[in-house]
Design a protein around this nucleic acid. Structure first.
Lengths: 148, 148
DNA sequence: TATTGTTATACTCTATAACTATA
DNA sequence: TATAGTTATAGAGTATAACAATA
């Protein structure tokens, strides 16, 4: 750094007193690295997340998928388009309710999800290398206590 | 939710095993709420963060500000433009190095930062209401251990 | 009337390349 | 040549409104 004014990024401003600031910076760093891991597999965080839910809930409706992921239905369309275009999922109109569309993974989709999941677990091992297994569980627990 | 397929958002898919997934969702919820709090004051998260660093480091250069905030210099320009337009900071060419620009808060800028900070502390009290003071400190500590 | 999927749109954040003026 | 600030641009995430088909 060229100036002597600031030594340790963010650690000597008034920002660290805000939990949300650290939370956002951590999340940005982790998601950026996750995106780099997924990119060569043709996946983004949103498409991987959707594919994962579709694999664990074959036949899920788009509306329920969006609710599960906490995204807008309208934004789920492009995500599902991408997965369908890659032949990792299928869209199938539900006979019982012809408004709804059931989403199911293809064999290739299931395989791709498994590969990507393993890659992400490796990524997390790197990003959270300085946390013990107990600390990681504690982190997850504390995050789950945040209001959403 | 209209379908019985999914009951508890994100809690019954394979996503929760990934810390990054919970981290991103928490950060999204917290930053969205923080943005709602700041909006009526004419601030966004980026402008508030920049204003805070400028208040605690009057005379800081734009490059150092960007480094402190972990953003690209190029992206800092619009942020600083907004703060200057609102008359909360001043840009001042440094005589010793005429390439550099020193950023200083105005009286109005200092006051606005204080008001916004208090509003954000209230916002955090709501978002982290289910965490004890010790748990909040623990959360900050664990977040700081994540690789960036 | 309400819901499902969809389109269109806009805004924020982030990232990269290239320019200018200064050093 | 290297650095500080800047411009332009593009991608990704998120949010809202409105529409057609179906219930």
């Amino acid at each position: 750094m060229s100036s002597d004014t600031i030594h340790d990024a963010a650690l000597d401003s008034a920002l660290p007193e805000l939990i949300g600031y650290g939370l956002k910076r951590s999340a940005t760093a982790v998601t950026a690295d996750a995106a780099r891991v997924l990119e060569p597999m043709g996946l983004r965080i949103t498409t991987f997340s959707a594919l994962t839910v579709i694999c664990t809930h074959p036949g899920v409706r788009q509306t329920d998928l969006a609710a599960t992921l906490g995204i807008e239905r309208s934004n789920s369309v492009a995500v599902i388009d991408a997965l369908e275009k890659a032949h990792w999922i299928t869209r199938e109109r539900e006979p019982a309710d012809r408004r709804a569309i059931a989403l199911r993974p293809t064999t290739a989709g299931v395989m791709r999800q498994k590969t990507a999941r393993l890659a992400l677990l490796g990524h997390e091992d790197r990003m959270f290398a300085d946390l013990t297994a107990m600390e990681r569980r504690e982190l997850v627990k504390l995050l789950s206590k945040i209001k959403v």
